[in-house]
Design a binder for these strands. Structure first.
Lengths: 243, 243
DNA sequence: CCTTCGATGCGCACACTGTACGCATGGCGG
DNA sequence: CCGCCATGCGTACAGTGTGCGCATCGAAGG
């Protein structure tokens, strides 16, 4: 649906469509928003500048008027999504509850946008947009107010755990989504294969949480696992609080 | 350097080179090894089937006789590299030392092959090769022998932290490597920019470990940070050991 | 020894990617 | 009314993963 010329050899006022002013044209914000929608819906490798342009009724190269490069677009998407992470205000009475809230918020955001951890792993946290800076600042305030003498080390400890777990979960959820099945169905179908794979490995077979069929609610199982590890880290940190 | 025909219109016994039998031909192992070398040297986005083929004195599509797809090749590379991770034998007197050893070994492997965490984050741990299975089995044995009632949860807690920290570090090291400078030089050059970036953020500026210029040995600083977080997690886990 | 066969490598081709370049267009300030 | 300049787009280029069919070989069987 090209809007100009349209293969018409005789350009004329009548064959030429006028600029539609209904749509908000093409803006950096609109591009980033649509990119995020595509990433969420179809995964990271499905996002191409051409497809993104098509979804915005625009050509692929038109996007480059508003965004320098695809990598920059990804950075913008990451920062946009970082705004969804909620960190409680510092100074509350219960620092553990506050940190748990922040960690959980990071995790749900990462699972809502499973491409997030991939981009973070690729680009590192080198370039930081305003929303990500805000997130970090609020975390620093939180841990400082909690009384940690070295807040940055405490933050790194907690959020390395959170990022690691979220990355693994996001990858898993992506695999599940590609299968077209629900998580429970997918687990059920994989169970025999998994058990057979760990046949020769005594301890693995014994330690696996998928041993029996109580994996009827895999999402809750993941929630519990995340909460367990988080408690472990917080307990370890609590030992380091002065007094 | 094509070996057959070579644009010669008259195929003849004399123009035709005979098969060189000096080189070990083309085997799955050789392909995987060379791929790992390329990944280590030039990064994940520099690996293409054509370049890999060229390095093996072969055409790009010849590789497909030994490897089904590029993704499969990446899985093979991951599993090959997983063999480098050392996990102490279970049942030793000091489980903390053993786990620390395993965690450190994972980290050094992940930093030696900075593409490892990227692939793990993409593929998840869905398809597991023999070396990765072995790694998991030894971990399970270690934590079981240590006396954890739910070894898989303990493993997940520790290694989520390890993976998260390693991912962040690997991304950082990749950025540094691309700059062509040493890590210390890179840090020195970035310091003013970083301080300016966190100008308006009180707690961030105060919490940052890059405040002063004692960042003369950034590698040691990273080592310490990793060790600190690991101790935190292990302390939290120790509380959960029965008795 | 000659023939046949299966395994291996390769050239070509296709659909697709990110993005540089220069032209057409239209709204807006002078 | 003129001219400018931001915006959009078509074309093009170099590069990607990989399917397909042909050429070539070493070995096996008569």
């Amino acid at each position: 649906m090209s809007r100009t010329k349209d293969k018409n050899p005789i350009p004329s006022v009548w064959t030429r469509e006028q600029r539609r002013s209904d749509q908000p044209a093409l803006s950096r914000d609109a591009i980033v928003r649509e990119a995020i929608a595509m990433l969420d819906a179809e995964g990271i490798e499905a996002l191409s500048m051409r497809k993104l342009g098509a979804r915005l009724n625009a050509g692929a190269t038109s996007l480059y008027r508003h965004v320098a490069t695809k990598d920059e677009l990804m950075e913008l998407a990451v920062d946009e999504v970082a705004a969804e992470i909620h960190v409680p205000k510092a100074g509350g009475p219960d620092w553990r509850a506050a940190v748990t809230e922040a960690a959980g918020s990071f995790r749900t955001t990462a699972l809502r946008h499973p491409w997030l951890t991939l981009v973070l792993g690729q680009a590192g946290l080198a370039y930081l947009g305003p929303n990500y800076m805000n997130f970090s600042e609020r975390l620093a305030a939180l841990f400082t107010a909690a009384g940690f003498p070295e807040p940055s080390r405490a933050i790194d400890a907690v959020f390395s755990y959170v990022i690691g777990m979220s990355t693994t979960e996001a990858a898993w959820l992506t695999t599940v989504a590609r299968s077209g099945e629900s998580e429970a169905e997918f687990v059920a179908r994989l169970l025999p294969a998994a058990q057979q794979a760990s046949a020769g490995y005594d301890h693995l077979a014994a330690a696996g949480p998928e041993t029996s069929a109580q994996a009827s609610d895999p999402a809750k199982l993941r929630d519990d696992k995340f909460a367990y590890g988080l408690e472990v880290v917080l307990d370890g940190l609590a030992l380091r609080l002065p007094k």
